[in-house]
């Protein structure tokens, strides 16, 4: 690996990542990842389990070395300047990594002291989220619910006022209300000027980020704003419901003109060519006709706007 001097990076980037690759033995975890994050941005890394999100986060937080490529955080190289990076970042691993046999308050105090600060000094930063668990501050961290654990972990990662925050799947395994609260918290932190890199397997959280990267098998499929990604979905999307959804999915995939079809909640999302002039292109009406001819009943067909999940499915189907 070539050492890269600080000057090679534009210092205005909060984070810059160039051609990062990493393998575990023969298994490739990350291949050629490049992206930049601007100061004060919420950058989402979105992809399924095992896509390489945690490996990427560990390289950026100086816990793992990349096999090749280079990355800098706030202008510091993740390999040579790792000590400086460790002073300015906040990191919340994907797994709950606090002391279960210490109380909520003790955990927070330890992390504050670890970074040479006090709870009181930066209390304003965590107030919104910590005030919700403060009534339980004498409780052991191990006895907290999933959502409260994440709130505590976030408080611990924030207590030293990091300039950049790495959150590895902060919303995995917690209830919808806590999820919503966590994201509201992230918006507030953004307004304080903190750059946030967050990973999640939930596609519906993509729209809460300023920009997102879709990751699959260790490679970024696309990096853009959620809006631009949705708009770039160049096809017509039709939602189909009906009796016997299993058979319906199979039949839909056999119909000429259907590019792809995936189960999507309680309906199926069918992708067809947007341009309806060619002979085998499908519109909502012609699709209904084709299905009813096959004897399907209670067919409900609605044209829908594509969302991030549709884009993701389309990108991996390519």
């Amino acid at each position: 690996m070539n050492p890269v001097s600080k000057d090679n990076f534009t210092v205005t980037h909060a984070l810059s990542c160039k051609n990062i690759s990493r393998s575990y033995g023969k298994v490739k975890a990350l291949g050629n990842i490049s992206f930049d994050v601007e100061p004060g941005e919420i950058f989402g890394v979105i992809g399924p389990d095992g896509a390489g999100k945690s490996t990427l986060f560990r390289i950026l937080t100086t816990l793992l070395l990349p096999d090749s490529g280079s990355a800098s955080v706030e202008g510091f190289d993740v390999v040579s300047d790792y000590k400086k990076i460790r002073k300015i970042v906040g990191y919340m691993p994907g797994r709950f990594s606090l002391y279960q046999d210490l109380t909520v308050e003790e955990n927070l105090r330890i992390f504050a002291t670890l970074f040479n600060t006090t709870i009181e000094e930066n209390y304003y930063l965590i107030k919104d989220i910590y005030s919700q668990i403060e009534p339980f501050k004498k409780r052991m961290a191990g006895a907290l619910s999933g959502g409260m654990k994440q709130k505590l972990a976030l408080s611990c990662a924030l207590i030293h006022k990091p300039s950049i925050l790495f959150l590895d799947e902060p919303t995995t395994g917690i209830d919808p209300v806590s999820r919503k609260e966590l994201w509201e918290m992230l918006r507030k932190l953004k307004s304080q000027g903190i750059t946030i890199i967050v990973s999640t397997p939930y596609m519906d959280e993509a729209s809460l980020c300023d920009r997102i990267a879709l990751i699959q098998n260790g490679e970024f499929l696309k990096i853009d704003t959620p809006k631009a990604i949705v708009e770039s979905f160049g096809r017509r999307l039709i939602s189909v419901k009906g009796d016997n959804m299993g058979l319906l999915l199979k039949r839909l995939r056999e119909i000429p003109g259907v590019i792809s079809c995936f189960a999507f909640g309680d309906s199926h999302h069918v992708t067809t060519e947007r341009d309806g002039n060619s002979a085998d292109s499908l519109t909502a009406d012609s699709l209904r006709f084709a299905l009813e001819k096959q004897g399907h009943t209670n067919i409900e067909i609605t044209p829908v706007e594509a969302n991030i999940e549709d884009c993701f499915m389309e990108l991996i189907a390519r």
Binding site: T62, Y91, F96, S97, F111, L114, C156, A157
Partner: peptide, 13 residues
């Protein structure tokens, strides 16, 4: 094993 070392390492200590 519990992952706390991971958090401790990403600190100035």
């Amino acid at each position: 094993e519990l992952g706390t070392m991971e958090v401790l390492l990403v600190s100035p200590m």
